[in-house]
């Protein structure tokens, strides 16, 4: 008999481990779609991951600053009618190539028919 509580505990433990490092993937995906400010990235991540991923704006700022120093992302300041200028981030050439290779090696294999069949079996 399936013990639902045990499965939930195991699922939470697995997800905690699985989600480590996933924020990077979602940030890249958000910026692949279009240039975005931190608020837009946060909204994209939460919406597209159907609420399975959440992130604090502070954490996003810290990550984006690091990526900027690593020349993975760049930003341009856009003037807005209210408040200070907003930073709109985009992937650099390095960032785009990095994401392309990462997706090719780690994500696209999940689109193979044999794997999809196993996932939906």
């Amino acid at each position: 008999m399936v013990n639902d509580n045990v499965i939930n505990d195991l699922l939470n433990a697995w997800e905690e481990t699985y989600k480590k490092g996933q924020l990077t993937f979602w940030i890249f995906l958000a910026l692949k779609e279009s240039n975005k400010c931190v608020e837009d990235i946060k909204e994209f991540v939460e919406k597209m991951s159907e609420g399975t991923m959440s992130c604090e704006e502070q954490s996003l700022y810290r990550t984006l600053r690091k990526f900027q120093n690593l020349e993975i992302v760049e930003y341009e300041c856009i003037r807005v009618s209210k408040g200070p200028d907003r930073k709109y981030y985009h992937l650099t050439e390095t960032g785009n190539e990095l994401f392309r290779r990462f997706a090719e090696r780690n994500i696209l294999l999940f689109t193979k028919e044999t794997i999809i069949n196993l996932l939906t079996k």
Binding site: K20, G21, T24, K66, N69, L70, E71
Partner: peptide, 12 residues
């Protein structure tokens, strides 16, 4: 490190 960032902490 990569550009001063610890390799295992960049994509955490």
């Amino acid at each position: 490190t990569i550009k001063g960032y610890a390799r295992d902490e960049i994509f955490q």
